[in-house]
Amino acid sequence: MENEGLVEVVLPGIVAPEGLRLRRGAVPAAGRGQVVVAMEATGVSFAEQQMRRGRYYDQPPFPFVPGYDLVGTVVTAGEGVGQGLLGQRVAALVKVGGWASHVVVDAEDVVPVPDGLTAAEAETVVVNGITAWQMLHRSARVRAGQTVLVHGASGGVGSVLAQLARAAGATVIGTASARHHKALRELGVLPVDYRAGNVAERVRELAPGGLDAVFDHLGGRSVTDSWKLLARGGALVAYGSASTRDDNGSKQLPVLKILARTLLWNALPNGRRASFYNIWAGRALDRTAFRARLRADLTEVFAAVGRGEVVARIAARIPLARAAEALRLAESGTVAGKIVLTP
């Protein structure tokens, strides 16, 4: 693969999925402290759906190569990098740049993928798994015997979060469309049809004493409804604004509104707490601690997959050259699990 040249997908501006461009070039070189990873699997996440609309709150200027994470094999190590990494399968969180056949990554940012996991299986739980693990265990600190609500429980993050919560001993209520309810029940999740209306009323029927944690990626009015469902001592973790994906105007405003609400709620003497989760929080202040935390948490998620506590749900495998098709499929909302792009 290394000798075949670079192939990457470029997002040129605010375009339909079919507006993505394929670009070829020379395989990049690894600088000091860096490695070149030959991509074996990368994914389509909600971030790319927002980015193509210009709606991701800190995306780079157009044009750029999207791709939030990847799994692949280290083919080149730069100066100052131990040669032991060569030939290793690793995972990396990059935010942008993953939709390419070869990606340059700082060596300290790669996490080894354990034997027994395929590249596609590992890819399903990189950004999704880190997000789910950190929200569950670092933000909400969910314990056995508690009851939690996961919005979008059939989605990429939601499905991993629901499974990790079940593995932690929690009762899980999950919102999803009716066609996903059978699969959720098989995971031990109590499904609620978000399209049927009165979601809050149905959740209260299932958890009359209130919830110990709610995980909300919807934003907007849903955040307020989620807050009201908490029991005393409960935690709301907001981590997106999916409900405003197709809105016009400022891309920062929906997030700022959520942040303002969490600050207000936390100032109230009501025994509940709220936070907005950002996977990159703390990176600028202490990169060493950030890397250590990410490595530890992703390693825990990989171990959970290895134990069968989390099933790697692959919705589709699509070649990188057909990224437009993959993005269109992801945006259709008709699939469960992760859409994986392959070289």
Score class of each variant (00 low, 15 high):
L11P: 01
P17R: 06
R23W: 05
R24W: 08
V27H: 10
V35W: 01
A38H: 07
M51F: 00
P63I: 01
L70P: 04
V74D: 00
Q88E: 15
A92D: 02
A92T: 01
V94M: 12
G97P: 02
A100G: 07
H102W: 10
V105I: 07
A107N: 08
D109R: 15
V110N: 02
G116M: 02
T118K: 06
A119E: 06
V125D: 03
I130E: 10
A132G: 14
R138T: 15
A140K: 13
R141V: 13
G152W: 13
A153W: 04
G155T: 09
V157I: 15
Q163E: 12
R166D: 10
G169W: 04
T171N: 12
T171E: 15
G174E: 02
A183L: 14
E186P: 06
L187M: 15
R204H: 05
E205S: 12
A213K: 06
A213E: 08
L229N: 05
R232P: 11
V237C: 11
A238I: 02
D286R: 12
T288S: 12
R291P: 03
R293K: 14
D297K: 11
L298C: 12
G306Q: 14
E309G: 02
R317H: 06
I318N: 05
A321Y: 05
R322E: 15
R328I: 00
A330E: 05
V335W: 03
T342F: 04
